[in-house]
């Protein structure tokens, strides 16, 4: 079981006990323990989020570079197609000239 799962399980159990407790004093006592767990989770989450943000930035940079490469590849394909169509035009003109010859 991971630390996150353990903390979740403990806070779930405390939550159920608080909801089941009948008087407010009992709820408040359990609440103190519940706060310790939820605050620990919050602290760990904030640390992980900050740490992962750096990794997100690096991976986004690389993906944006890949996206630029794809755009360039599509441009290249367009250029190849345009060149072939130009060649076709030349062949077309040659065909017309050949047909016009006696």
């Amino acid at each position: 079981m991971t630390l996150g799962e353990q903390l979740t399980e403990t806070s779930d159990a405390l939550l159920e006990l608080i909801l089941a407790a009948e008087d407010i004093e009992q709820k408040e006592k359990l609440r103190e323990q519940f706060d310790v767990i939820t605050e620990s989770i919050e602290k760990l989450v904030k640390e992980n989020v900050k740490k992962n943000s750096k990794e997100y930035i690096a991976v986004t940079h690389n993906l944006n570079a890949a996206n630029q490469s794809i755009k360039e590849a599509i441009d290249d394909l367009d250029k190849i197609a345009a060149t072939i169509m130009q060649v076709a035009k030349v062949v077309e003109m040659l065909g017309k000239m050949a047909a016009a010859m006696p």
Partner: peptide
């Protein structure tokens, strides 16, 4: 339960 955003 991953101690990240959805956990928050």
């Amino acid at each position: 339960t991953g101690l990240n955003l959805l956990h928050a």
